[in-house]
Simulated assay, not measured.
Amino acid sequence: MKAYRCWAEIDLGALERNLGRIRAALPPHMQYVAVVKADAYGHGMPRMVARLMQSGASMFAVANVYEGAELREVGRGWPILVLGPILPEEERYLAEYDLTATISTPEEVDRLSAAAARANTILPVHLKIDTGMGRLGVWHEDAASLYEKVMAAAGLKLAGIFTHFSSADTDPAFTSEQRNRFLHALETLPDLDTSKLLIHADNSAGLESLSPDSPFNAVRIGLLQFGCLPYPDSFLAELKPEPVLSFHTRVGITKSLPAGTSISYGQTFQLTRDSRLGVLTAGYGDGIPTTASNRAQVIIRGHRCPVLGRVTMDQTIVDLTDCPEAQAGDRVTLIGHQGDECIEVQEFSQWAMCIPWEAFCSITKRVPRLYRTSREQ
């Protein structure tokens, strides 16, 4: 086996089991929209998409046209929703790669209708309604006028309507207000037949607030399918999602230094005892953020070892004094299980002062992804 200095292991079997559990928890009519933007949250889009296609995903969502084109190379037959705005120079690729655009403004309706005419085709679109995120989408009080413009536009076919909750993991009251705004906006749309459209608002964080008597017939699942709960007290914990990604590096060298020695750039840490240190073969160039300096821990030979000093681009220093058996070449776990110890991405994110989404996406391209199947477990 090739000796890797830093790598991420991706458990394809866990991904498939997570999707199965999520689908089993959803009403039978509910469509599963697998969100795989940002290289499937750093897990590697092509392999993730291929397994999700095999496992029963109904549809995919990406951030932009480039990601949609990359996904389409994996397979055809699944709708692909582009969640971000379409730039003028990207319009022609919607027809070429059979992508569904998101519309937020009248100007987009005009542009995409003209693009459909040039391609001599009908382009599917989803109308996005802004219920309080303040990002993409037509403001909910103005939704009816944009809806009518979409319905009247030659070359466009309305395939769905959706919104996005800004605080589903932290503010249930505001999420409820956003939901009510969305439902009211739907009521203002003339001659709306929701049975012929995908109506979606919930993502992994807001999934628990779905109501069986609502018009919603699709959910967007992102981080949950990769085994990360949006927040620990969620009812989704009952699904017992399995982590799909683990993050590892190696001990490069070990060395001993006396008490009083300063460690790494900026002298932000000073040894208070004679210490044995390990220099790891990964740093912020791999995905260990500098915000984890003097805060994070790693697992070596089943023991937690603290990070000392500032994380550097290619190396990170840890304290091995209480793990005397550690040696050069040892496997180091940054996220994942080793022995009886475990560092979950939520804990890693707290040290990194970020959210789990960002932690996954911050594992850089120079870190190889190694994929394991169920037979290899």
Rank of each mutant, 00 (worst) to 15 (best):
5 R>P: 02
5 R>F: 05
6 C>Y: 00
10 I>E: 04
23 R>I: 07
24 A>W: 08
26 L>H: 07
27 P>S: 13
39 D>C: 02
39 D>T: 00
41 Y>L: 03
42 G>M: 05
42 G>L: 01
45 M>L: 09
47 R>W: 03
48 M>R: 00
49 V>E: 01
51 R>Q: 14
55 S>D: 12
58 S>P: 08
59 M>S: 03
64 N>F: 05
65 V>C: 03
69 A>H: 02
70 E>T: 02
77 G>D: 09
81 L>Y: 01
84 G>W: 02
87 L>Y: 14
89 E>R: 15
90 E>G: 05
91 E>R: 06
93 Y>M: 09
94 L>Y: 04
95 A>L: 09
99 L>S: 02
99 L>G: 01
101 A>Q: 00
106 P>T: 03
108 E>N: 06
113 S>I: 11
116 A>Y: 02
123 L>S: 04
128 K>R: 14
129 I>E: 01
132 G>Q: 09
144 A>R: 11
146 L>F: 01
156 L>G: 05
156 L>S: 05
157 K>T: 12
159 A>D: 14
162 F>Q: 04
165 F>L: 13
165 F>A: 04
166 S>N: 14
181 R>M: 06
182 F>E: 00
183 L>F: 08
184 H>M: 10
184 H>S: 13
192 L>R: 08
193 D>T: 07
194 T>I: 11
194 T>D: 07
196 K>M: 12
196 K>I: 09
200 H>C: 06
207 L>V: 05
211 S>Y: 08
215 P>E: 01
215 P>D: 07
215 P>R: 05
216 F>T: 06
217 N>D: 11
220 R>H: 07
221 I>T: 00
224 L>M: 00
226 F>A: 00
237 A>L: 11
240 K>H: 15
243 P>V: 06
245 L>Q: 06
246 S>V: 04
248 H>K: 11
257 L>A: 13
258 P>R: 14
260 G>K: 12
262 S>W: 10
262 S>K: 12
264 S>T: 13
267 Q>K: 12
267 Q>R: 11
270 Q>L: 08
285 G>E: 09
287 G>R: 03
295 R>G: 07
295 R>E: 10
299 I>Q: 00
307 V>W: 00
308 L>W: 03
310 R>E: 15
311 V>P: 03
315 Q>A: 14
325 E>N: 11
331 R>K: 15
335 I>P: 01
337 H>R: 15
338 Q>S: 15
340 D>N: 15
346 Q>I: 12
348 F>E: 05
357 W>G: 08
357 W>Y: 14
364 T>M: 11
370 L>Q: 08
374 S>G: 12
376 E>I: 05
